Structures are given as structure tokens and as C-alpha cells.
Deep mutational scan, measured.
Amino acid sequence: GCWSIEHVEQYLGTDELPKNDLITYLQKNADAAFLRHWKLTGTNKSIRKNRNCSQLIAAYKDFCEHGT
């Protein structure tokens, strides 16, 4: 299931919640338009490089609020 937004804000980028895991989750569960909008298409590695934690948190919040 979903992590809470508080959990993501607190732990994203740590061993508790690697950016990797959040990106994988969104790529698996969000639709193509969402991924394009948040620039989460492409390889996990390129996304990790190009999107910082606050951008990923914003995307995750949007996903939780509007889910697909």
C-alpha cells in the first residue's frame, strides 16, 4: 500500500525509504500522463539524478490525492 505522506517527507532519501523505492512505486502505479507531468519517465537512475527529494515528495502527494 501507500506510505503516509508524513513518512515520505521524513524518510525519503534515507535507508528507510530510498528514492529508488518511491520512483519504482510511482512508475508501477501511476499512469503515463502523471509520469510525464512529473518527469518520472525513463530509467530509475536518470530520475534519481534529475529529481530531488522535494520534487518526488510533491509528485507522491499529488498521486495520493488524485490517485489513478
Rank of each mutant, 00 (worst) to 15 (best):
S46C: 08
A32L: 11
N20M: 14
N29E: 11
S46W: 08
L22N: 01
H37E: 14
V8P: 00
Y25D: 00
C2R: 15
N29Y: 14
D15N: 15
G13T: 02
L40K: 03
K45L: 08
A33C: 11
E9W: 04
R51N: 13
T41G: 08
E16M: 14
S54P: 10
E16A: 12
D31S: 05
G1E: 14
A33F: 05
F63A: 03
Y60W: 10
L56S: 01
L35S: 02
A30M: 03
G67F: 11
S4C: 07
E6N: 09
G13P: 02
G13D: 05
A30P: 00
C64L: 10
D21I: 13
I57H: 03
I5D: 03
N52D: 05
Q55K: 09
V8Y: 00
I47H: 06
E65S: 14
I47S: 07
P18N: 07
I5L: 12
D21H: 15
D15C: 15
A33K: 13
Y11K: 15
Y25Q: 03
E6G: 09
D15Q: 15
N29I: 02
P18S: 14
N29D: 03
T14L: 04
N50I: 04
D62H: 15
G67D: 11
Y11R: 11
T14E: 04
T24L: 14
L26M: 12
E16F: 12
H7A: 05
N44L: 14
E9C: 12
E65D: 10
K49I: 03
Y60C: 02
W38E: 02
G67V: 13
L17E: 00
K45D: 08
D15M: 14
C2Y: 15
D15S: 14
S4L: 05
H7G: 03
T14N: 03
A59W: 00
C53N: 07
D31E: 10
L40G: 00
W38I: 01
K28N: 14
N44Q: 10
S4T: 15
I47M: 14
D31L: 02
S46T: 11
T24G: 11
Q10S: 11
Y25F: 14
Q27C: 10
E9A: 13
T43P: 09
L40P: 00
L35A: 03
D62Q: 12
G1W: 06
R48G: 09
W38D: 01
G42N: 04
L22I: 15
N20C: 14
E65P: 05
S46G: 08
V8D: 02
W38L: 02
G42D: 08
I47R: 05
E6I: 04
N20E: 07
T14F: 02
D62G: 10
L40E: 00
E65T: 15
K45H: 04
K39V: 04
H37Y: 10
N50W: 06
Q27D: 02
H66V: 11
W38T: 02
H66D: 12
A30C: 11
T41C: 13
N50T: 09
L22R: 01
L12E: 01
K39W: 05
T14I: 01
K61Q: 11
S4Q: 06
G13I: 00
K45R: 11
F34T: 04
D15R: 15
L40A: 00
K28E: 11
K61M: 07
N44K: 13
Y11H: 13
D15A: 14
A59M: 08
N52C: 07
H66G: 15
K39Y: 05
C53P: 05
D15K: 15
I23P: 01
R48H: 10
C2S: 14
R51E: 08
N29F: 08
L56Q: 00
L26V: 04
F34S: 03
Q55N: 06
Q55F: 10
I5T: 07
T14H: 06
K49R: 12
D15W: 09
C53Y: 05
N50E: 08
A32T: 11
R48V: 09
T24K: 13
L22S: 01
K49N: 10
Y60N: 00
G67N: 05
T41S: 11
D31R: 06
Y25N: 03
I57P: 01
E9T: 12
D31Y: 04
H66K: 14
S46P: 04
Y25K: 02
F34P: 02
Y60V: 00
L56V: 04
G1Y: 03
E65H: 13
P18Q: 07
G67H: 15
H7C: 04
I5P: 07
D31K: 08
A58V: 07
L56I: 07
A32G: 09
R51V: 11
I57T: 07
C53M: 09
I23N: 01
K61N: 07
R51M: 11
T43M: 06
I57K: 14
R48L: 09
A58E: 13
N29C: 08
N20I: 14
F63M: 04
A32E: 14
L40I: 13
E9L: 06
S54N: 09
L26C: 01
C53E: 05
F34M: 04
N20R: 15
D31M: 02
I5R: 05
A59F: 01
H7V: 05
C2K: 15
Y25W: 13
D62C: 14
A58Q: 13
C53H: 07
P18H: 15
T14C: 05
N20Q: 14
E9I: 09
G1D: 09
T68K: 15
W38K: 03
H37C: 05
L35G: 02
W3M: 06
L22E: 01
S4N: 09
G13N: 04
A32V: 13
S4M: 07
S4G: 05
C53Q: 06
K45A: 09
I47Q: 06
S54V: 13
E16L: 14
Q27Y: 03
Q55R: 05
I57F: 12
N50S: 12
W3C: 03
I47G: 07
V8I: 06
L40R: 00
Y60H: 08
I23K: 01
N50K: 15
F63Q: 02
C2G: 15
I47W: 04
I47P: 06
P18D: 05
K61T: 07
K45E: 09
F63H: 05
N52V: 04
R48P: 06
K49S: 07
N50M: 05
A33P: 13
I23C: 02
A32D: 14
V8W: 00
S46V: 08
R51W: 08
C2N: 15
L12H: 04
W38H: 13
H7R: 06
E16K: 15
A58S: 12
C2P: 06
K61I: 11
L40M: 13
C2D: 15
L22W: 00
Q10A: 09
K39F: 04
C2V: 10
Q27T: 13
N29R: 08
L26E: 00
Q55S: 13
T24I: 09
L22A: 02
D62P: 01
I5W: 06
A30I: 01
K49A: 08
P18K: 05
D21S: 15
Y25G: 01
A32Q: 12
L17M: 10
L12I: 09
D62S: 13
N44C: 07
K49Q: 07
H37K: 13
L56N: 00
K49G: 06
Q27A: 06
L17A: 02
G42H: 05
N20L: 15
S4D: 10
L40W: 01
G42I: 05
I5C: 07
I47A: 09
C2H: 05
C64N: 09
E65F: 13
S4H: 05
K19P: 06
R51F: 14
C2A: 12
G13Q: 02
H37L: 12
A58T: 10
N52S: 12
C64M: 15
Q10M: 12
A32R: 12
T24P: 01
S46F: 07
N20S: 14
T43I: 04
Q27L: 10
Q55L: 06
S54A: 14
V8F: 02
S4P: 06
A33G: 10
W38Q: 04
A30W: 02
G1T: 12
G67C: 07
F63T: 00
K19D: 04
I23W: 03
N52R: 08
Q27F: 05
T41H: 12
K19R: 06
E6C: 07
E65R: 13
N44W: 05
I23L: 05
I23T: 02
T43R: 12
R36A: 11
A33M: 10
C64F: 10
L26A: 01
N20G: 14
A59P: 02
H7E: 07
S46E: 12
H37D: 09
P18A: 07
N44R: 13
R51P: 06
K45P: 05
I57D: 03
Y11A: 09
I5E: 05
K61E: 05
H7N: 10
H7F: 11
A59L: 05
N44M: 13
A33S: 13
I23G: 00
L35P: 00
W38C: 03
D62N: 08
R36V: 08
Q55W: 12
C64S: 10
P18V: 06
R48Y: 08
K28V: 09
L12W: 00
P18L: 05
R51A: 08
G13C: 03
P18R: 14
E65W: 09
T41E: 13
D62W: 11
I47C: 09
L56F: 01
R48Q: 12
L17Y: 02
N52G: 06
L26R: 00
I5S: 06
D21Y: 04
W3Y: 12
N44H: 08
K28Q: 13
K39C: 08
A59K: 01
